[in-house]
Design a protein around this nucleic acid. Structure first.
Length: 988
RNA sequence: GCCUCGGUGGCGGAAUUGGUAGACGCGUUGGAUUCAAAAUCCAAUUUUCUCACGAAAGUGUGGGUUCGAUUCCCACCCGAGGUACCA
């Protein structure tokens, strides 16, 4: 009786929390900030059809523990959850089945919710958001409109309303404007501006808008029928599905994120993010500081080659120029004698895929154009070459080659026997180039000789400026973000086209709902799926969507057919949670002011280049336009490590006989021999004598060539059929899957078949997925929560293994029993003062748990809980004070059992309202009383002391102690080192 | 190549302003309880030598600083992840 019945307890409290809205966060009235706020957020999931496995909740459990801890600490905690519910898988499924993506998405969300609920999270579900919900994407469309109606003013270094720009144009034309805009934007006077037609004006403004429409080179994926962002492409193929991607020019919506490069970079310094993630974003933005330099072409004075360099100090070391093979000027530079070679080289490079170029990174190739450039400072002639290591997409697509100071230039010069002038003082470059900048002085550089690298950089840029041959310049790798997707299941743009010019739809008429289509594929002539919609035109008189064939381009106009990318909805969702049901604003200023930004954000590292950059961009934009008071969305961020699955593999060898094949499940040693091409060492008698070997097949017919690694494969088997010694339950596996039925298993001498084990991402195809529901049913959610934390540090990748779970489960049982020491297992607590040793146990645990919380080191807290429960059990502690405090400490980790015990102790309120116990150092005084003493680092003995004494006091006691005196034997020590609470060393 | 993180028992992992390395858990071994099993409890468990008392070595390798180094410094080895002809 009174057993720890976790199933009943957990169901009971999950219902209680839901019924009582225990975790509903309140937005205080009138901006009352007397209670400090804390915003803990998880990266919201895309609800896929596969449901959750034990890896998914890891981060949620961590943020939940921290949220519960913060509630105990008196914070007003916002801890919401929602779904990133627009996305490709639902659309692919719709294409295959014809089912509307909204339907499947809804079903998946229900499965997710049921699974999440079983784990006992303290989410405030009243604030749930779904990016595909019209009440949500209304505001995504609104933000797009704001981006469309904004431009970036470099002088103010912020985004401003486009109306401001129009006013400036009307007053001064382009003269006083310093904006981030398209390269070929024309200059004009105020008069010229006023004279422009409305269409012309709109076209010009489009060059300035932050959300703009432009003909851009995009990554087109024919297989998926859509463009992809750079971060959606991995190794030249699409991240999803692995389809090939080609470059193509298309008219696309883009986001002028490049306006924010510097601020995105600077902002990183203010964030408490993991270093690898910051480094990733720094590289992704890819800032290079240097100079652009113009090299006139000899004999063609109108032609100038602009190069970008980060090392202007080395300009006297230039011995040739290198252009990208597809550089615009190549045709004009090539002489007749070199024409054939150049064209062949261009063809060769163009044919190389991204992959080939990466694979052949060591191959040096290039071709001379026949032309020469004139060095802007020395006037010397330098040959112009083409090389495929120069990329047209970066910088100016041309480099000044300084072989003595750059590895690629050096190798190139050696390979083609070009001169390698040395411009470094006292440095030998005969074997390798000199790349370092530190302690380096320039030589053979005219007036700049003897300057340090740093001095020379400045002086040479100055000189180039004087000569009109160059200027200081900074380039970035980050490009503007393509914002159009040729998909159905995404946010429609609030845009229609009048005379080819995009117009926005007023907020009053938003959201613009997705139209119904019969098929979710692109149209036959290549338009996006929305091109199939019968009702998809905008009636400007009645302000509503009408049938597409009514378009007359007078009052009824075509609507945008593209939809927004996945990152649109996820870039601002953190703000919607603050005021999730606001129908008039994306969130009220009061709510935004109160909750500010996310204090703790937990999620995977895979969003480093996408979501986490875009959402910083939008936050800064909304800040510029006065909607937000914060400049960054996520103050602290933790990347939780993935939980991996352990999979088991059976090695199968297909032996071919005349006309048929027999599949053997072979031993690891035979497999290894095949791998090492030592097939002749394999003993074939067990194969031949296998009891199930078909009698109809003659062994003499064996095709010897089938004894090779090519005829093997490894097949995943459900891990449940494998024991701790990796021995396979052959009968079980055969009954489980039809594949295994036909294999002839070759057991070892002891009759066991041993499988290979591998640790890998959890996936259905590997049969290594562990479902949290199963764990909850067998051990309970509290055990699952604690065990996931106990596996190891949060940030670390770790394999899931059910082996250790009994330890945590056993702890919860002992915790339960600690209270049920009364007659017949009833709860027994007393109000008598607690024993000092019990107080010691308690306060040492409080201290440790608080420290662990500060460090997000949840795994070590669990160890101290285990120690505490063991000690208190041994002490037969029944003190209410001690046991209640301990329950509060444990409750963030194991909330269900804590609530149940809390109630059994006579409390009416949820334990989540209880204050966190206060640490009392005096309870620990006795705990630290042993000081080992050493003399000359050799002799040591222990001395019992009281704690909380000063160094001097301890030293006095130590020195006068008889043991010390005996040890010293009349000698005087040189030094006595005292570390309070630790150790005492006496140095002779 | 570069960047980042890491390397501690049979396993997951503790321990950092330098202070008794191996907490806690798993596993293993032995024992108690039981007719038996499950469950529970107790004890041992870094390695080597020793019947034992005990001794020595020991945190990837080699050096260094220090009375004292898993921790700090230098050089190297190995592993994981990321990234790249980025000028």
């Amino acid at each position: 009786m009174n057993m720890y019945d976790f199933l009943e307890i957990e169901a009971k409290w999950q219902k209680y929390w839901a019924d009582n809205q225990t975790f509903k966060a309140i937005n205080p009235k009138d901006g009352d900030k007397s209670k400090p706020k804390y915003y803990a957020l998880d990266m919201f999931p895309y609800p896929s059809g596969a449901g959750l496995h034990v890896g998914h909740p890891l981060g949620y459990i961590a943020s939940d523990i921290y949220s519960r801890y913060k509630r105990h600490k008196g914070f007003n905690v916002l801890h919401p959850m929602g779904y990133d519910s627009f996305g490709l898988p639902a659309e692919q499924y719709a294409i295959q089945t014809g089912q509307h993506p909204a339907t499947t998405t809804l079903e998946n969300i229900e499965v997710y919710r049921a699974q999440l609920d079983k784990i006992g999270f303290s989410f405030d579900w009243s604030r749930e958001v779904r990016t595909s919900d019209p009440s949500y994407f209304k505001w995504t469309q609104w933000i797009f409109k704001e981006l469309f109606h904004s431009w970036y003013d470099n002088q103010a270094d912020k985004a401003r309303a486009i109306d401001d720009l129009v006013a400036i144009f009307e007053k001064d034309g382009t003269d006083s404007v310093q904006a981030v805009c398209d390269e070929n934007t024309p200059s004009f006077t105020a008069e010229e501006w006023k004279a422009f037609s409305e269409k012309k004006k709109q076209e010009i403004l489009l060059d300035y808008r932050i959300a703009y429409l432009a003909e851009t080179q995009v990554n087109w994926c024919p297989e998926l029928g859509t463009v992809l962002a750079n971060d959606e492409i991995v190794n030249g193929v699409s991240e999803r599905g692995g389809h090939p991607v080609v470059r193509k020019k298309m008219k696309q919506w883009s986001m002028r994120i490049t306006a924010y490069t510097e601020r995105l970079l600077q902002g990183l310094k203010t964030l408490d993010w993991p270093q690898p993630l910051k480094d990733f974003q720094t590289n992704w933005i890819g800032k290079s500081v240097g100079a652009s330099v113009e090299f006139p072409v000899k004999g063609k004075e109108d032609l100038k080659i602009e190069v970008f360099t980060t090392r202007p100090d080395t300009i006297y070391g230039v011995s040739f120029l290198n252009l990208a093979p597809d550089h615009d000027l190549v045709a004009g530079l090539t002489t007749d004698t070199q024409k054939e070679a150049v064209e062949e080289y261009q063809k060769k490079t163009a044919a190389k895929s991204e992959r080939d170029r990466q694979a052949n990174i060591k191959d040096i190739s290039g071709v001379f154009t026949g032309s020469y450039a004139v060095h802007p400072l020395t006037g010397e002639e330098v040959p112009i070459w083409l090389a495929d290591y120069v990329l047209s997409g970066y910088g100016t697509g041309a480099v000044m080659s300084v072989p003595c100071g750059d590895a690629r230039d050096y190798n190139f010069a050696k390979h083609f026997d070009l001169p390698i002038p040395n411009i470094f003082k006292d440095i030998d470059i005969s074997e390798e180039p000199h790349l370092a900048k530190e302690n380096t002085y320039i030589a053979n550089s005219g007036a700049f000789s003897d300057l340090s690298v740093e001095e020379a950089t400045k002086a040479i840029i100055e000189k180039l400026k004087e000569e009109g041959a160059g200027k200081a310049e900074t380039t970035y790798r980050l490009r503007d973000a393509v914002f159009s997707r040729q998909r159905y299941w995404g946010e429609p743009f609030p845009i229609y086209y009048k005379d080819g010019i995009p117009q926005t739809i007023d907020i009053k008429y938003l959201p613009l709902h997705l139209p119904e289509v019969k098929k979710y594929l692109p149209t036959e002539d290549g338009a996006p799926p929305l091109g199939r919609a019968d009702i998809w035109a905008w009636d400007t008189e009645n302000n509503k969507v009408v049938a597409s064939d009514l378009v007359d381009d007078k009052t009824i106009f075509p609507l945008e057919l593209n939809t927004m990318p996945g990152w649109a909805g996820s870039s601002w969702y953190l703000f919607r949670y603050m005021d999730a049901h606001n129908e008039n604003e994306f969130a009220s200023p009061e709510a935004l002011d109160y909750w500010e930004n996310v204090d703790l954000y937990i999620g995977g590292i895979e969003h480093a280049g996408g979501h986490l950059i875009y959402s910083r961009f939008w936050t800064k934009f909304l800040y510029d336009r006065g909607y937000l008071k914060v400049k960054e969305p996520f103050q602290k961020l933790i990347n939780q490590g993935m939980i991996l699955g352990e999979s088991a593999l059976v090695r199968v060898l297909n032996l071919k006989f005349a006309g048929t094949t027999v599949s053997f499940a072979i031993s690891a040693s035979d497999y290894k021999k095949l791998e090492q091409n030592k097939a002749d060492e394999i003993d074939l008698t067990p194969y031949q004598n296998h009891s199930d070997f078909p009698s109809a097949i003659k062994w003499e017919d064996l095709d010897k060539s089938s004894l090779s690694i090519e005829n093997t494969r490894r097949i995943h088997v459900l891990i449940d059929y494998v024991d701790n010694d990796n021995i396979l339950d052959i009968e079980g596996a055969k009954a489980w899957s039809i594949d295994f039925k036909e294999f002839l298993f070759l057991p070892d001498a002891d009759g066991n078949y041993v499988v290979d084990r591998e640790v890998d991402k959890m996936s259905k195809s590997k049969f290594n997925v562990v479902n949290p529901d199963v764990i909850c049913e067998k051990y309970g959610a509290d055990t699952l929560r604690m065990y996931e934390m106990f596996l190891g540090p949060l940030e670390q990748e770790k394999p899931w293994s059910t082996a250790g779970i009994s330890g945590v489960h056993g702890f919860l049982k002992r915790f339960w029993r600690l209270f049920h020491t009364g007659e017949n297992g009833s709860v027994l607590v007393t109000d008598k003062p607690a024993a000092p040793e019990s107080l010691k146990t308690l306060h040492k645990t409080i201290k440790k748990v608080e420290e662990d919380m500060d460090n997000f080191s949840f795994n070590t807290s669990i160890s101290s809980f285990m120690i505490a429960v063991n000690e208190l059990t041994a002490q037969k502690c029944t003190s209410r004070e001690v046991l209640e405090s301990l329950t509060i400490l444990i409750s963030p980790y194991a909330p269900h059992i804590a609530e149940e015990i809390w109630q059994r102790l006579g409390h009416k309120e949820s334990i989540s309202t209880a204050p966190f116990p206060v640490f009392d150092p005096s309870a620990l005084v006795e705990a630290v009383k042993e000081y080992p003493i050493s003399f000359n680092g050799k002799v040591r003995f222990k001395l019992e002391l009281d704690a909380d004494l000063s160094k001097e006091e301890i030293e006095g006691i130590v020195m006068s102690h008889e043991k010390t005196q005996a040890e010293l034997a009349g000698r005087t020590p040189k030094r006595v080192i005292v570390v309070p609470g630790r150790i005492v060393n006496i140095v002779g």
